[in-house]
Design a protein around this nucleic acid. Structure first.
Lengths: 152, 152
DNA sequence: ATAATATATGTTATGTTATAACATTGCAAC
DNA sequence: GTTGCAATGTTATAACATAACATATATTAT
């Protein structure tokens, strides 16, 4: 699975900054730090891993609520997604473009890919309609093995 | 959302008993109790709720591993599914028929429905193929509101 | 029947993930 | 400059889950 380039990472961070600016969302230092930790990791990150990194960066120990609050902010605004199946967080590489994101998670190398194609989205929404159900939030996480790991 | 009838519940329990018998799976007392608690609740159940009920039934306090081990057995054999988005467990009403199950979960009344249609399954598997990905496990949980709750 | 083995359960302790509740700070608007 | 609000700090604890080892129960081979 292809990892993200530095350019992609910086673009993503820049994009989020712009969105926050134009929407008057307070991208405070901590929120920014948490976001950077998540996107730069390039793999799903755990809340307590973020907590450790934040503590290191700022040279003083932080507490869980600090991190969870930042994560909440980032999720609310579509900059980060939670992978429920592995209690981890990942950056969104097309913030605001998709409300819903679907993921492929490689169990071996732990790298993930977003797979938000419309046909899948359509299929899910048709399923909901068929059951008279109004969607507020969808979790689709496909675990397995990516091409690289499968060939090894 | 329609709840399950007593007949359906009993059928499900009976079916699981038969599957265990013919596959030489030890459906021990605790495993059976945990399964019954899950299916009879008719809504997603939390591990510690099960723990309480088990303790009541058996008139002595049980410990978390007892419940989690039973859950593991039931999940491994396809009798129960975990809803990762809400850390809860639900019974499967067509055990063994589907390896993967997809769910609609009403945030208001907390009732859930399975929605394992083939077209959805196909779409997901096509998505995986398209990304050169081999699926081992899929989590699809659609949260929102069911017809009844929406009309209120 | 009995020993050997495997399977399941009991028990204690602890690890991991997440939030409640309240105090404090920083900053903008009046 | 004080009121109000958003964000953060801090303490404590809730909620979810497993490791590790002891004991019991079932299965099987002899």
């Amino acid at each position: 699975m292809k990892t993200k380039s530095t350019t992609e990472l910086n673009d993503t961070i820049y994009k989020v900054e712009q969105i926050c600016k134009s929407n008057k969302l307070g991208l405070t230092q901590i929120r920014r730090q948490v976001f950077e930790i998540i996107v730069k990791n390039n793999k799903p990150v755990k809340a307590y891993e973020i907590l450790d990194e934040i503590s290191n960066i700022n040279d003083k120990s932080s507490h869980p609520p600090t991190v969870y609050r930042a994560i909440d902010f980032l999720i609310e605004n579509g900059f980060v997604h939670k992978l429920n199946s592995i209690n981890s967080y990942v950056g969104c590489f097309h913030p605001k473009a998709n409300k819903e994101c679907y993921f492929l998670i490689c169990k071996k190398c732990n790298i993930y890919q977003e797979c938000c194609d419309d046909s899948l989205k359509d299929r899910i929404s048709k399923t909901a309609v068929h059951h008279n159900f109004v969607i507020s939030n969808t979790t689709l996480e496909i675990e397995g093995h990516c091409l690289d790991c499968n060939q090894k």
